[in-house]
Amino acid sequence: MADERQYCTFFLDGYYFGIDVLKVQEIIRYQEMTRVPLAPPVVHGLINLRGQIVTALDLRRRLEMPDRAATELPVNVVVHTDDGAVSLLVDEIGDVLSVPEKAFERTPETLQGIAQELIRGAYKLENRLLLLLDIGKTLATSAED
């Protein structure tokens, strides 16, 4: 088991991403949000998570991907941070996967821009790549965007 890791997986603009399952508090379906004027574009809005006010960040915006179609509702992946829970909006949620550590490879140097910064590497699964997102960096710099 030591060389296996568990990831919560999701889709963004056709890519398959994973984040450490222990960081994830819960997954909730899209709910009505309160937009925040003057906020950085990555901030999608605020949601009421059982009495707690949680900031929802649009991961597509964070990763500088094109916005999703207005008809597609994103899903909230709620992660713990030192500053309380934060929701990451993704296109669609995948399974929790156990992946062998040896299938991991660091990001190639050819990756450009924000992806180079936020994607730590990829797990080579049988028929596709699982991109490992650096949660700390994803949340940390979003304030300066």
Partner: peptide, 12 residues
Amino acid sequence: KPLQKQLKGITV
């Protein structure tokens, strides 16, 4: 309730 750090900079 306080705002989270992503929104701290907005003084209004």
